[in-house]
Amino acid sequence: MKKILIFMLFFVSLGGFFVTPTFAKVLIIANNSVSQESLNKEDLQNIFLGKMAKWSDNTSIYFVTSENEVHEDFLKTYINRSSSQFRNYWRKMVFTGKGQKPKALNSDEEIIQFVSETTGAIGYVSTDAALKNVKTITVN
């Protein structure tokens, strides 16, 4: 009986280890020129890690990151990285010549303005941000 309890405890703890709770307090927004209405999580990761550089119509992707509190939520929910891991990842890209440091803006308003004015742009804002001239992207 004791062994069974230990065995069950082991699997319950494994479950806790592998299942990621998601609390999306983040909206993904894109420029109206972007033809895609939704992205899967893997594509979103690849975009913000600089691996996916083109939309499905082969136009260039320009992504922008946030410097406010929504940044940590976005990274944990969609990119599976902490802010320090994300920063380290881009340091690696910069110091091997594989990428340039992502553009980072301070507020939701600045991000919305950049995304609305830049063809092919994608970014993220808090769910209560006032959206204007951008589209929201659903993450599957």
């Binding site: 380290n88 340091r91 690696k92 110091f95 091997t96 010549g97």
Partner: peptide, 17 residues
């Protein structure tokens, strides 16, 4: 170009990463 070898060869010189 940098040589890709293992997980960290390309960034072996950069202490900060």
């Amino acid at each position: 170009v940098k040589i890709a070898l293992g997980l960290y060869n390309e960034t072996r010189d950069v202490d900060a990463v």
